[in-house]
Design a binder for these strands. Structure first.
Length: 505
RNA sequence: GGCGGCGUAGCUCAGUUGGUCAGAGCACACGGCUCAUAAUCGUGUGGUCGUCGGUUCGAGUCCGACCGCCGCUACCA
């Protein structure tokens, strides 16, 4: 639960490393971010949704060389895989940032120069056991059989390098105080505890530059060095909002940012990043939303294990909104989730085909058979069984506190109430137009409001329902959620169900 | 080893500061209805709320021990 800034909303996803490919796990992150962005736009906030690709690092330059390309040519090619995937999935980002953009170079140099000037960066020697494939140093205790990298099972090499170091140790107390002052900054709280625990055990300085490669952002005060990939990557969150180029935009969105991230990159975002911000003299991000992993059959998605699911295939086969709904409804934001086609089809059929789709269909059938095919206006007050105001307020609270699962479940409760109401009133047995019109009007009104509140999760499907009802979707949501606004008058013809049940292929 | 979390109906999970707290959804069974997409409505599953103790008039709800599972414990996007 957290308050959101009143009139602007800035949300980011991690930027994806170009050597990877979009899979259902990254699609999950994007769907969540997209849904939160859509909610805030509908709620009338000035919303900025950022994603992009991380394009530096040794591995990129190596792979580029293997493919007889320059690193730049390679990342130009690879970044399009993400751009295309998000386009096909209808992700409504406002800006796709690439860390190889000149604007990003300037921001990284400006930001880190500031930290340098503030005295939190110094030069020293670093000695460590290094795995080239990982681009990472390991402790002896982490190695397999004492010599091999635990990821690649290949020998590591001892490297001595002159590096610039970031004085992370200086921020142990400030970070501790920050976590105490802003207990809501990291959600869920177990992740906050994890970050705080890490901080409390003592922080060491960290190396932030490399001399062994040149595919990176040059260190402005020492051109022998480039910044290590992680240090330029995080700064993308500032580049995109004019950190050193547009103070007005920057002030609007910072520090009221919502960083969405997976639990595997918690430390970078919840320890290093706030410290870097403090060192540069800006406020740390005010919200870090840590999500879990999407598992497949209980296993982590990874290429090496052969467990990988292509979100575009799912979307093509079953529809984007079916996938979105399943990801949002069945995986509590913050917990791990399990993805399966069977689960997706089952959830969609229960909630969307049966509960929502069938409710709409039975109403429209009655409009055709009893009301000359014209939808009636709604009554002034909602029937008791709807628990309308209570549930609508609850849904809003869930959306405002980043709990898609709760929001969607509450919408299902509203729909169940409407189905019960129809059973109680039995409009199909009546021949009085006024009676039938009142009953159907009340349910159509509920469907109007539910569809509006469902827009963030299932934009296309919700629009179809609203279109059927003759409701404009470009309205300000805040003014459209009170009962009694539906005027009716939409002409209905007998037609096939809008949301037919899915079958497992 | 250290720190933290979890273990509630077949499945996924809710259960504020202890006293209708033994629940929801899905699945399953039976019944109703037939406006509707094998839909929808109603009822049901006798779950030792991981185990054993303790505090209390009373504990999933607090304390202790134990069993099982998991996360973090530094430079992998």
């Amino acid at each position: 639960m957290s308050e959101t800034s009143p009139d602007s909303f800035y949300i980011t996803t991690p930027i994806y490393y170009v050597n990877g490919t979009p899979h259902v796990g990254t699609a999950y992150t994007m769907v969540v971010a997209d849904t939160l962005a859509r909610w805030n736009r509908l709620w009338g906030r000035d919303t900025f949704f950022l994603t992009g690709t991380d394009e530096h690092g040794l591995k990129v330059s190596q792979v580029a060389q293997d493919n007889n390309m320059t690193p730049k040519q390679w990342v130009d090619l690879m970044s399009t895989r993400f751009i295309d995937a998000w386009k096909d999935l209808g992700i409504s980002y406002d800006r796709f940032i690439r860390t190889t953009e000149p604007e990003h170079y300037r921001t990284v140099q400006s930001f880190l120069s500031k930290i340098y000037e503030n005295g939190f960066i110094y030069k020293d020697l670093y000695t460590g056991l290094y795995c080239v494939a990982c681009e990472a140093y390991y402790n002896e205790s982490e190695l397999v059989q004492g010599v091999n990298c635990p990821v690649h099972l290949r020998p590591v090499t001892e490297m001595v390098e002159e590096n610039y170091f970031f004085r992370l140790s200086a921020f142990q107390d400030p970070l501790k105080k920050w976590y105490e002052d802003f207990p809501e900054a990291v959600t869920p709280s177990t992740r906050r505890n994890e970050a705080l625990g890490f901080i409390l055990q003592g922080l060491e300085d960290i190396s932030i530059t490399r001399t062994s490669i040149d595919w990176g952002v040059p260190v402005p005060w020492d051109n022998e060095h480039v910044f290590y990939v992680w240090y330029d990557a995080l700064i993308n969150y500032l580049t995109a909002i004019g950190y050193d180029s547009d103070q007005g935009v920057f002030d609007k969105y910072w520090p009221h940012v919502h960083h969405l991230l997976g639990k595997d990159i918690l430390r970078f975002h919840c320890v290093w990043w706030p410290a870097m911000c403090m060192a540069a003299g800006i406020d740390p991000p005010n919200k870090l939303i840590v999500h879990g992993w999407l598992l497949v059959g209980g296993e982590k998605i990874s290429k090496s294990s052969g467990i990988t699911v292509d979100p575009l295939e799912i979307a093509n086969e079953y529809g984007i909104d079916a996938m979105r709904y399943y990801l949002l409804k069945e995986t509590h934001l913050g917990s791990d989730g399990d993805f399966s086609i069977e689960g997706m089809v089952s959830t969609y059929n229960s909630d969307i085909a049966n509960n929502l789709g069938n409710l709409l269909q039975r109403c429209l059938a009655l409009v055709v058979s009893k009301l000359d095919g014209v939808t009636p206006a709604c009554p002034l007050q909602p029937p008791e069984v709807f628990k309308f105001d209570q549930r609508v307020d609850q849904t809003i609270r869930f959306w405002e506190s980043f709990q898609p699962t709760g929001a969607l479940e509450t919408l299902m409760e509203l729909l169940r109430g409407a189905n019960i109401y129809l059973e109680q009133k039995e409009p199909w047995k009546s021949s009085e137009n006024e009676y039938v019109g009142n009953v159907i009007g009340a349910v159509l009104e509920l469907l109007r409001v539910v569809s509006l509140l469902l827009l963030p999760a299932m934009p296309e499907s919700s629009k179809k329902v609203l279109s059927r009802l003759g409701v404009d979707t470009t309205v300000n949501l805040r003014e459209e959620l009170t009962f009694g606004r539906y005027k009716g008058g939409a002409v209905i013809e007998r037609s096939a169900p809008l949301f037919p049940r899915l079958e497992v292929e």
